[in-house]
Design a protein around this nucleic acid. Structure first.
Lengths: 207, 207
DNA sequence: ATCAAATTGGAGTATCAACTCCAAAATCCG
DNA sequence: CGGATTTTGGAGTTGATACTCCAATTTGAT
């Protein structure tokens, strides 16, 4: 499996990574189908033969980009979601997401969500790969909520699995609405509302 | 504005509509960039000259498809969202969405959401058009919730505008997760969780 | 230093997609 | 019915895009 990877020189690895990074950025900003091999060549500063030396074709590049984005996204969210103290510490998680979105000026939306919407109905292999990525993401959230529940911070009758699905949906939907309106508010409101819901489940007494 | 439309023969109108319907279906199923003019010609059963007789180019076709899908979606949701009796009557709304998604075998996701994800960062005109469509959709939900609130079915301290944003995000995110996993459950869970939240806001006493 | 392997440059090809053009047929309106 | 207008058929053009090929250069292990 890594037999071919083993044959990569330091410089070769750098070129390989540069191509993936350029492809990932372009595919996020303009979609997979609108991103041409030539665009990627220009952005990565490589010649056609270099690109085809590292990737058999566009499909392989798409696969590599999905892997790349999956790693990027899950790393960030794992950092935020493990060792939550209270429900309110989800606020930092929300802040991270809103910050990243704002830095991008709401362009691109979610690196995984965009790919999913783009590829789910055109590329069955990519769909499966993305479904697995979302399952892992969902599991990260579920574990965070289960942790809170174990600490007594989240109501015992709450269902962390279902709440994780709803939370991830809020994130994805919020990102989409923010992307189309060029305003981070929908993402913030969607996540905050789900956090409110966790509070409401936990301390049912509202003034 | 309708001066050109007035010159359309009955047959011409039918051809025009057939082209838009075919384009809408194909763009939903495979994305805008992957849908070729030739695909649309074949699906609508028209020749190149016919298509270019009714639309100056692909851009105009995209505009027409956005309008078409906006009307379709808003009509369905207006039907469901006006004259809500209780919070639980949102269950019928959820059922309609889940049914439509199931009929499509989770292919395509949301007719507006897919277009938004596809076009937001490539076509500024389309983005504006879609942002307006989402604003109207959001307003439909807000009115439904405000109605419930006026009837005393929804807590008076609830903020219908914010809840409408969160609800629409749940719908969009749920549809995306359902699309990528080919399973209607995420949509159902996401919407149900938001409905639970409305209940939690309204009768805070939970056993 | 040396040689095999990895990497790179750049010209070239085959295919496909968007769009054009013009003449023929159907339609509408009086 | 008759003439102006709308609608349709289908071949053709232009440009872009994915991908190929081979020779030249660089790299790394010995």
């Amino acid at each position: 499996m890594t037999e071919t990877a083993r044959r990569l020189t330091r410089k070769g690895q750098a070129t390989h990574d540069r191509i993936v990074a350029a492809a990932a950025r372009l595919m996020l900003e303009q979609g997979v189908a609108r991103t041409t091999i030539e665009d990627i060549q220009a952005a990565a500063g490589v010649s056609p033969s270099q690109l085809y030396h590292y990737f058999p074709g566009k499909d392989a590049l798409v696969t590599a980009v999905i892997e790349h984005q999956t790693t990027q996204v899950l790393d960030v969210h794992q950092d935020c979601l493990q060792r939550l103290d209270t429900i309110d510490s989800l606020g930092r998680w929300r802040d991270v997401m809103v910050s990243i979105l704002t830095e991008m000026q709401c362009v691109g939306g979610c690196p995984l969500g965009s790919l999913a919407s783009d590829l789910s109905d055109s590329d069955p292999v990519a769909r499966t790969q993305l479904a697995a990525a979302f399952a892992r993401w969902q599991e990260l959230i579920r574990e965070g909520l289960a942790d809170l529940q174990a600490r007594g911070e989240l109501a015992s009758q709450a269902d962390p699995a279902a709440l994780a699905v709803a939370m991830l949906a809020a994130v994805q939907g919020g990102l989409l609405l923010s992307q189309v309106s060029r305003d981070p508010a929908p993402l913030r409101i969607a996540v905050d509302t789900m956090v409110d819901h966790l509070h409401a489940l936990t301390r049912p007494a509202v003034p």
